[in-house]
Structure formats: C-alpha cells, structure tokens
Design a binder for these strands. Structure first.
Lengths: 347, 347
DNA sequence: GTCCGGTATTCAAACGTTTTAATACTCAGA
DNA sequence: TCTGAGTATTAAAACGTTTGAATACCGGAC
C-alpha cells in the first residue's frame, strides 16, 4: 500500500541498500544508479518512513515542548519560535499542554518518553516531581532546556528575558523623563528581578528607595499619600491596567499625574484606551534560542544559559512629571514609539 | 542501555512474546506469569518504545495540529482542547505552526507524513495547494478534520462556532434591550455568517435592514447620520474596540448613546476600560470536539461536521437606548454578566 | 589462466515491537 | 501406553530503515 524503500528497490531491480544509500547521496553508489533512484523516488513522491529510520538510528527526530495551559498568547509565541527552528532542522515538534500540576506534567513526560523524543523544552515545570523526572531524562541522554523560567539544576540550561534589565529599562525611562519618585506594583512582595532592576536604577541615579506594593488597596493608599510617586513600574501589563484603573478612581490622570510602565507588551496595550508604555519581551526569540540550544545539545555540544534583552515600547502612558522644569527637551527628543517594534498582526 | 521488552524477557527467562502479551493482559498468558512480568516491568519503570510498536502496527500514535502563527490566544485555546483529548487517549500531539502560506503549510504536511501521523486537525489551510494535499492524506487513509474554518470538501468534516447563531445572539440581545436601529461593523462586505445572523434577527423582529460598514470612516459617517444606529454588532472584539474609539471621537457615550457588542470574548474585553458585551466562542470545546471527531474517524467511524453554540457575555457596553420608554424592566431583569462564563486566568 | 585493485552492488543483521502459527506440556480418559 | 483436549509458551516473521562487511564484476598486468 504505502510506498516504501523496498518497493522502489524492487521496481528498479536493485537492493534496498542501494536505494537507501542513493537517497542520501552516498558516494558509494554509481552516479547513474543514484540518479535513477532519486528520479523515481521524486516522481513517486516517496517520503521515507521515519518510524523505521528512527528505530534503526535511535533518533526519533521529534522534540517536545511542555507548556502550561495559561491564557494569553505569551507561550504561544514562544511555541512559534521553537516550531520555526525545529522545522528548519527537520525535527517534528510534539507539544504537551499541562495544567501546571504534577500529575499532568508526569503524563506528558511519559508520553514524550513513549514517543522517544530526542529532546525537551519545558516552560511548565514547577513541580518538584517533574524536576526529578527531567533530571532523569538528562541522565538518559535526553537533553532538556528550561524556557522562560529560572532553571532548577545546574545541568539544565535555560533561556529567558533579562528581567532585571527590563525593570531597569522601565525605571530609567521614567528617570530620563524627570521622575524622581518611583514605585513598583507587582503580584507579591517575594524577590523579583524586575523589581530589583528598578531598584538598582533608582539607586544609581540617586533616587530614594522604590516602594513596592502588591495589592490594589496598598496601591491606592500609596497614590493618596503626600509623597506619592509620579512614576509607576509594574510587573506586567495586567498590573498596569489595574493600576491605571486605581489611579483614575483616585482622580489621577495618566500620564499627567502618573506615568505607568507595563511589562510584556501584550496585545491590548496598543489600544488607544491604554496606549501603554511597556517593556517587551522577545518571546519568539526566546523560543528560537531555546530550540537552538536544544539542537546544539543534540549535536553533543554544550549549551550556555542565556538571558535575552527586553526592549522598551514607548507609548502615551508615560510623560515628564507635572512640576518638571527640566527635561522637557528629553520628552520631545524621545519620540513616542521610538523603540517600538510593533509588528503584531491581529486575528 | 535502554530498557526493552527483550531485556525484561531475558531477565525472567521467558520469550519476548510472553512479555508482550503479558503487558497487554492477554488471557493467553498464565495469571502467575503475567503478574511476574507486570511487576518487574513496573519496578523497572519500563516504558514501551513506540517506534517499534508503531512500525509493527502501522499506527504512530501521533496526531497533528496545523495552525497559523496568528497572535492572540484563540488557537492556543483550541490547541489546549485538542491536547487534552489527545492525551486522554494516549495520542501524542505534533503541532505545525505555519505562516499561513502554502510553502510552510506544505513543509509541515511533509513533516507530518514523515513522522507518519495517524490523523490531522487543521486550522491553517487556506491555500489550494494545501487543500489538495489534505485530500491526498484522506485518500491515503489519514483522516483530516477542519477546525474553526469552513471546510472545502464534503469528505472532510469540520467543527466551528455557529457564527450565524452568534450574530443572532448579539442582535437579539440588543433588540431585547429595546434597540430598533442596529448596524454591523466588520472587516469587509463579503458574505459573513455573523452578519447574516444579525440580519435575520432584525428581520424576524420587524426591524429595518441592518446597514453594514467595513471601515472606520464609513462607521464614523454612519454614526453621524440622522438615523444613526443605537446598537452596533461587530465582527470581533478588535472591531468593537475600534468602534468604541470612533464613537467616542464622535462624542457618543457607550452605552448611553451607542450599545456595542463584540465577538470572541478576548481577554481585554473584561477590563474596566472596555467592559464589553461580547459573544464568546467555545474555543476549548472546539478543540475537544475536533479531536473527538478525529478519534472517531481513527476508529473507522464516520464523523459529522458540527457547529458549536456561542454564548453571550453581557457586560457594560450595552444598555437600553436613551429614548426607550418600554423595556426598562427588561434591562434590570437581565443582570450584567448573567450568561457570563468568565473563567479566565491571566498570565 | 590467475591474480590484483578498484568500483558497484548486495547481504544480513539490527533496531523494538506484535502476532500468527506452531510447539511443549499436563492431565483425563480409554 | 496412547489419544485428545486444553493450556501455556515460544519461534519466527514482519514492519521500514540503516550500515559494516562481504561479494560480484571488470579490465588489465603478469
């Protein structure tokens, strides 16, 4: 039924070995024979059966990407990057969508193992059971790359956005506009590189320490205080959106009374209602780099962990603070959207 | 190195055949032997090598999903639905991210063929070359399901949202609120089921024909006209966002002067800045149903094309029209968010 | 006629499973 | 002791490919 190498061999009255060699241009087969084989294969639309090949070569030609089923397009774009590179190199891409829980992660890893994937990129790997599993994969010779998350073992390289640089970028943008009182709004008060970057920048420019809030109530309180900040850095665009709301409830206008910087450059931030200055992560590149690293390891090379630089997308939610005498030049000098790399398509 | 069935056989001093049969609980092997085999296999963490199995059974245990690399989380959620069901049935899921062009679609299909996927779900399949390819897959016995797109051949079943019902839902919501003059804003004037549904509802309730615009200019003109609509149905949330902007530019308030209904229930619509009433598509279910259909076909059964019902998410962008005497009861009767199924998590 | 060196091709085993048909064993009954 | 009927196990082939070793062929030199 299906066209196989053997059948081609039979048609041309040569051995399967000859066909196999001819198809991979092995110099051992005579030029004339090789040509004959390749022509027929092309005409008949022969596609080698990877199952046979894989069985023999111990390489399935599949790589896997495990991600959690989180709404939003963030991992989607990473997936695209991974997919592009995988395809360019002839690898098939399996995905395992987990619910972020150890059980479904285990199910996926088991499936990957059954299918004998050659390597794994993982974005969903919080659970410690999962981590053990992944280390076991490494030991078995299946390389793993952690993507968009800190790694948990020195043997496993990772790639993600340089979050500290992102925080710094946001803070420095505000500082450059003349702001002297910054604050930070994020999901929790736990250690956070984005906040660290922000704090470092403030320190470097001689500003007061940057206060940090983790709830809308605390944010409202902060914005109502005498020494309220004029510039707000947030952990994510979603927090920036919340902050905008809180600020407006408090009668503050954006950007006149408060400049707000988001993080992630999510789709909605470019809508006129938000027009949000934000730190963009290079999702697609993260995916591409992750896959590049995986390919390197599949070739037997080592792969270094990497941090990728974020970039600032300047929009209308940031401006010089109200009372600022200086820096008006700055403001007009740095055009809106200057560093913008808005090349999204909408659905 | 890797643990194989043969090695287990050797350890227990039985034949590979016995082990194979024992592992699949075949009644032919003695209960005692079977138990011995299964115990050892479990202890050693044996995972069968799918490559060998697939080669023998002519079933790779892989299905593929081909989607275009469109921003937004729409296909992402479909992917999740597909992934869930695939995993539940032990299938591995390959994805092929295309750029929507025939060339990359062909590349992906070729890769799928190499890996010998058992079936394919496709959301990206506009190109006619791709369509030919897909028909060829069908002929070769690899079933195809078209997902979230009209099908192009009677042999290939498809599943998507009932767009006409969606349009009807939106229009009837507005009509129920007391609106008598509706309009529709979409990407083009080409035939469109969402518009059809809207038009049908208007007709059924004795309203005037629903005018239709496809550009912001035309929309602005329409909103400035004497007989301007009080209710606007849009093709997608993105158009609703544009419409909101256009309306506000024209000095119209939402919802007092203009009620707007979106389509898709994208993430940003729930933000207070938009608070958009919208028609939600059941993306996840679309994915699940698509995979269910594929599984049915893999079992040799036929699969019927299906339309899935959308649902209305009522938020603050719709209200009774300004001059409406009647229906005030209606308005308060139908609470905000009544039919809402907002269970999103944010990243 | 034999032997050589080289080139072109093929053999055969292997990869890890599945499965059909065959074999070995055991116990009853005659 | 033989037959027959189960029951439990196994041998062997097959799936489609790869690959190192072996073979076949050929023209020329001795």
């Amino acid at each position: 039924m299906e066209l196989t190498l053997k059948k081609i061999a039979a048609m041309l009255d040569v051995s399967p070995a000859t066909v196999s060699l001819a198809l991979k241009q092995d110099p051992r087969v005579a030029a004339r024979t090789g040509e004959r084989v390749r022509t027929l294969a092309r005409e008949l639309g022969y596609v080698p059966n990877n199952l046979g090949r894989a069985l023999q070569s111990r390489r399935s030609g599949l790589v896997a990407y495990m991600l959690a089923d989180i709404a939003g397009s963030f991992f989607n774009e990473i997936l695209q990057g991974i997919g592009e590179v995988a395809t360019e190199h002839g690898y098939g891409l399996m995905v395992g969508v987990t619910r972020g829980c150890a059980a479904s992660e285990e199910t996926q890893l088991r499936l990957f193992r059954e299918k004998r994937v050659d390597g794994i990129v993982v974005s969903s790997g919080g659970q410690s059971a999962t981590r053990d599993q992944l280390l076991r994969y490494e030991e078995r010779g299946v390389p793993v790359i952690v993507c968009s998350s800190e790694t948990f073992d020195a043997r496993i390289p990772h790639v993600l956005t340089d979050n500290e640089a992102g925080g710094r970028l946001a803070a420095e943008h505000l500082i450059g506009l003349g702001h002297r009182r910054l604050a930070y709004f994020g999901p929790s008060l736990a250690p956070c590189r984005r906040y660290d970057g922000c704090a470092v920048a403030a320190l470097a420019h001689g500003l007061a320490p940057v206060p940090r809030v983790a709830s809308e109530e605390d944010l409202a309180r902060l914005l109502a205080s005498r020494s309220r900040p004029t510039g707000l850095v947030t952990y994510a665009d979603t927090f920036a959106a919340k902050a905008k709301h809180v600020a407006e409830q408090a009668g503050l206008r954006i950007p006149q009374d408060l400049s707000v910087v988001g993080f992630d450059n999510m789709w909605f931030t470019s809508l006129p209602e938000f027009d949000l200055t934000t730190v963009a992560q290079p999702q697609r590149d993260i995916g591409r780099v992750a896959m590049d690293m995986l390919l390197a390891r599949l070739r037997g090379q080592a792969a270094e962990s990497r941090l990728l630089a974020p970039s600032l997308v300047v929009r209308g939610s940031t401006a010089a603070p109200a009372g600022s005498r200086r820096k008006e030049d700055r403001k007009s000098g740095r055009l809106r959207g200057v560093r913008c790399q808005d090349t999204r398509t909408s659905r």
